[in-house]
Amino acid sequence: MLRLRHEHDRAPDRWQAARVRLSALPHLPERGLGAPDPEAVYARLLDAVTAALGAEPVRIREYLPATGHGPQGPPRDSTVAERDRWILVCDGDTFGDRWKRHGRETVAQDLRRAGVTCVVRRTEVPRVRAPEIHLDLIIPEEVQERLVIRNDVFAGS
């Protein structure tokens, strides 16, 4: 079972809608500590994350240097002149599109940056070798702000 939780258990309805039950996993010949089919667990997790966050627009933080000019022309005193600032630019993609195009590493980086975690639990099922896998996806309240991509524009300086 996949359960989506907000940090304070106040998850928006769209995150609650992505519940997935993992009960059709193949049997293990021996009992172990892992999942019988890790790829199936990953696929279900990716489906749930895409359902919860895939529609979010990709926003990139960019540095906009000051022009040194006031709004109407030549340089003026520093109180009127435009200042350096950071702006958010949408590239027209959603995170779902980005994750399909770039793969697992990009998904992992984005989810780590956003603070999204997943708790995996195993439950033994009577007379069945394969355990039932439960996933709890925990999404922070400020996930939209944390998903912003912040490139290091000063790395080459």
Rank of each mutant, 00 (worst) to 15 (best):
P65M: 04
A66V: 10
A66T: 12
A66W: 10
G68F: 09
G68Q: 05
H69V: 07
H69F: 14
G70D: 12
G70H: 08
G70C: 11
G70E: 12
P71F: 08
Q72C: 06
G73A: 03
G73P: 02
G73L: 02
G73R: 03
P74N: 04
P74R: 11
P74Q: 09
P75N: 09
P75H: 14
P75V: 13
R76V: 15
R76P: 02
R76F: 10
R76M: 14
R76A: 14
D77M: 05
D77W: 15
D77A: 06
S78E: 14
S78D: 13
S78T: 13
S78R: 14
T79G: 01
T79F: 11
T79I: 07
V80E: 10
V80F: 08
V80K: 07
V80D: 06
A81W: 02
A81S: 10
A81V: 15
E82T: 09
E82H: 10
R83A: 12
R83F: 09
R83D: 09
D84M: 08
D84V: 08
R85G: 02
W86G: 02
W86S: 07
W86V: 09
I87H: 02
I87Y: 00
I87K: 06
L88D: 13
L88H: 06
L88T: 08
V89G: 00
V89P: 01
C90M: 12
C90L: 06
C90V: 12
D91S: 03
D91I: 10
G92K: 07
D93V: 06
T94A: 07
T94I: 09
F95Q: 00
G96M: 02
D97L: 07
D97S: 08
D97M: 11
D97N: 08
D97E: 15
R98P: 03
R98H: 08
R98Y: 07
R98W: 06
R98V: 11
W99Y: 10
K100N: 10
K100G: 07
K100H: 12
R101V: 13
R101N: 04
R101Y: 12
H102L: 15
H102S: 10
H102F: 15
H102Q: 13
H102P: 00
H102D: 13
G103T: 07
G103M: 05
G103F: 07
R104P: 00
R104G: 06
E105L: 12
E105C: 04
V107G: 00
Q109S: 12
D110T: 11
D110K: 03
D110G: 03
D110L: 03
D110N: 04
D110M: 03
D110Q: 04
L111I: 00
L111V: 00
L111N: 01
L111H: 01
R112C: 02
R112G: 04
R112I: 08
R113D: 14
R113V: 04
R113K: 13
A114H: 01
V116G: 00
V116C: 02
T117S: 11
T117H: 03
C118Q: 04
C118Y: 05
V119T: 13
V120S: 01
V120D: 00
V120Y: 01
R121K: 11
R121P: 02
R121H: 14
R122M: 01
R122K: 11
R122F: 03
T123I: 09
T123R: 15
T123F: 10
T123A: 14
